[in-house]
Design a protein around this nucleic acid. Structure first.
Length: 646
RNA sequence: GCCGGUGUAGCUCAGUUGGCCAGAGCAGCUGAUUUGUAAUCAGCAUGUCGGGGGUUCGAAUCCCUCCACCGGCUCCA
């Protein structure tokens, strides 16, 4: 008999050799039908792996990430089988599950495939899935494994196996197909009811561009056809929300080949929107005790040599700019922090002066690789909502938490309610990637963990994701259609203060070193506006919207009333315009709806007589008529509900 | 940066076995209409067919090259 502990803490006894799926069956038939994978004592196993000793058991379904991973990993096997059947002689390499779906990297050799082949692949895939073939793991000796792939001439698998330890090599069979695999499958292929090959792209063996070019086939599968449909709908939705499309339609920003790649040009409406966002944060920052500072766009190369940025990221910076006379070298600034350090140093600091908080919407320039540029989310010139806090060790946790408060305030005000905090620590195996002492890193890392814990944040920890100068806490935000974005970031840094020899005089009259906190709630204005645009589908919160209303006249007889109303609303700090085109009212309403203006005010004979406006809300239709003053109140009330005081 | 794809009017797109002056819808302009809650009618205008070079009697169409954009890889202070 074996004792099996379930996640709820209950312990059940079974005969030795029972499988996870049988345990599930003992709980309920429904559960057994839905179990996709299992962990025994924390190790991923097959759902049919016998349990021969006392163990803790966790069962996973489609509702768990682990369940999805097993589902998609198994789907990758079926994809490989499909490709092998359709294109005899292809060489399989690797095929992992990813965040949404899976891929398989294949060397097609003589064959070549394109989008046109997708329907054929999908059809064969689903035929194979319907065979309900069971996944069976088997152990294979290193010699046998190598022999198999050498015979097939698959140098990729040979390379993989050579790096594995004899005795730990397993293959997975299903139907007539077999593949090197470490395990973690769903019970059989029949669970896969729907498949979509999402794209076909190039990829290099081991991600190394000097190595063989492979073809990567991406796919996603689902246990129900309906879920695939929903997924495809989500993709459509994402397309509709794409900030590159909306940015063009709403006249927010543009790019010009003449100006250069990755250098956004903000159009009047976009610039106004961005200014409002900046003003919103500036206001909160003043309340939080920040001092605005301003620094130039270039700085002496020595500044960045001192900070360590040059050594670390010189390659990704624009080439140095030199002066005509003495050949001094300057860089377009890739970061604001070195400048802020120099501001700190401009006057002696006492322990009573700290914390010092310098804030700047600082524009920085980085030479991003051309293939990396993407709309407004990845550009070469952008403005960070940057700030650097210089604090005493005894203030670190409290100041860090105050920054968390500010970031949370910003997110909730903008309708991002669903987020988690990701704490990025250093990878202790690659110390060469970081600057600073182990001791300081330990201090910084534990400070972040403590601050986040005390704030009760929902956190995850990522090792090896830290910045080169310090660990960080990033806010991972979920948008309206469930996509995750990395937004606000807070970083603790012991290193720059050392490099810049920053000091303050303590109460003991001795020199001490402050600690720096880097933080940016939006990250960059460009990226944030992009994400916000996609989140709200271009229907920006009232206080931010480029135009809050449009006045639509029934005919030109009401132009003067419309102009008077516009003036009145403008005097009350509302933004809008009059549409006095000689079009029918239906046409004006349609055009205004499509341009995502929040409110329409219709003025005709009735309204002229009783001094009212007929109000229509975008997406909601007619709200009836009211005095213009009442409309001002309506908007102001709406804004107040959106933005609370910090 | 690498691989693949794309580039025709402000926008969305048609036009490729090389052949009269390169097209449509929307937007724009002009005029008519004076309109009551999601598209009024008519007319007009609109192009270095991404740039440069080449092949050809003739190139949007074929070749070379550069650029930008899209997807992916690698990267992301």
């Amino acid at each position: 008999m074996v004792k099996i502990t379930l996640p709820d803490g209950s312990i059940k006894e079974f005969e030795s050799g029972i499988t996870p799926i049988e345990v599930a069956k003992s709980i309920s038939e429904g559960l057994a039908r839905n179990v996709l994978s299992a962990k025994v004592n924390g190790n991923t196993v097959e759902s049919v792996t016998p349990i021969t000793e006392d163990a803790t058991l966790t069962l996973f379904t489609w509702n768990n990430d682990e369940g999805k991973t097993a589902f998609w990993h198994s789907s990758a096997h079926v994809l490989a089988q499909t490709l092998e059947q359709l294109y005899p002689g292809v060489k399989l390499t690797i095929g992992p599950a990813i965040e949404s779906g899976f891929y398989y990297d294949v060397d097609f050799g003589e064959h070549s495939i394109s989008e046109k082949d997708i329907p054929k692949i999908e059809q064969r895939f689903i035929e194979l899935a319907r065979q309900k073939a069971e996944f069976k793991m088997k152990e294979v000796s290193k010699a046998d494994a190598l022999a198999k792939y050498k015979k097939e001439g698959n140098e990729f698998k040979v390379e993989l196996i050579e790096n594995l330890v004899d005795g730990e090599i397993t293959f997975c069979d299903h139907s007539d197909f077999t593949d090197l695999c470490r395990g973690g499958h769903i019970p059989n292929t029949g669970f896969i009811k729907a498949v979509k090959i999402t794209s076909i792209a190039g990829a290099y063996w081991r991600g190394d561009e000097t190595k063989t070019q492979l073809t990567r086939v991406y796919g996603i599968t689902f246990p129900k056809k309906k879920e695939l449909d929903e997924y495809l709908e989500m993709l459509e939705e994402a397309k509709k929300r794409d900030h590159r499309k909306l940015g063009k339609e709403l006249e927010l920003f543009t790019f010009s080949e003449k100006v250069g790649q990755g250098l956004p040009l903000w159009l009047p409406k976009g610039a106004a929107l961005r200014s409002r966002l900046e003003d919103f944060l500036k206001k909160a920052q003043i309340k939080a005790g920040y001092d605005p500072v301003m620094t130039p766009h270039i700085g002496n190369k020595d500044l960045y040599v001192c900070s360590g940025h040059y050594e670390k990221y010189g390659e990704d910076s624009f080439r140095p700019i030199s002066t005509p006379k003495d050949g001094e070298e300057f860089l377009l600034k890739p970061m604001n922090c070195p400048h802020h350090c120099e501001i700190y140093k401009s006057s002696p600091k006492s322990y009573k002066d700290l914390p010092v908080r310098y804030a700047e919407f600082g524009t920085v320039y980085r030479y991003e690789q051309s293939g990396e540029l993407h709309g407004l989310t990845r550009v070469r010139g952008f403005t960070q909502d940057d700030a650097h806090l210089f604090v005493r060790p005894d203030q670190l946790i409290e100041e860090f938490q105050k920054v968390i408060d500010l970031v949370q305030y910003v997110f909730t005000s903008l309708g991002f309610d669903d987020y988690e905090a990701q704490i990025s620590l250093r990878d202790k195996d690659t110390p060469e990637k970081y600057i600073g002492s182990d001791e300081n890193w330990d201090k910084a890392e534990s400070a972040i963990i403590q601050a986040a814990e005390e704030k009760g944040l929902n956190t995850t920890i990522e090792n090896g994701e830290a910045a080169f100068y310090g660990p960080k806490l990033d806010f991972m935000v979920k948008d309206a259609i469930g996509r995750k974005w990395q937004l606000g970031t807070i970083q603790v840094d012991y290193n720059l203060p050392e490099r810049f020899e920053l000091e303050y005089i303590g109460s003991d009259n001795k020199k001490h070193r402050p600690i720096m906190i880097h933080r940016a709630p939006f990250g960059s204005m460009e990226r944030f506006v992009a994400i916000l645009t996609e989140h709200c589908e271009g229907k920006f919160p009232m206080w931010m919207a480029p135009d809050q209303f449009a006045i639509l006249t029934i005919s030109e007889k009401y132009d003067d009333v419309a102009e008077k109303t516009l003036l009145l609303l403008a005097q009350n700090d509302l933004r809008g315009y009059v549409d006095n085109r000689s079009e029918k009212i239906g046409r004006k309403i349609r055009d205004t709806e499509l341009s995502k203006i929040p409110y329409m005010l219709i003025i005709g004979e009735k309204e002229k007589e009783n001094g009212e406006v007929s109000v229509r809300k975008q997406g909601h239709g007619d709200l009836g008529s009211m005095k213009p003053e009442a409309f001002v109140d309506l908007i102001n009330k709406e804004i107040k509900e959106l933005i609370k005081e910090f």
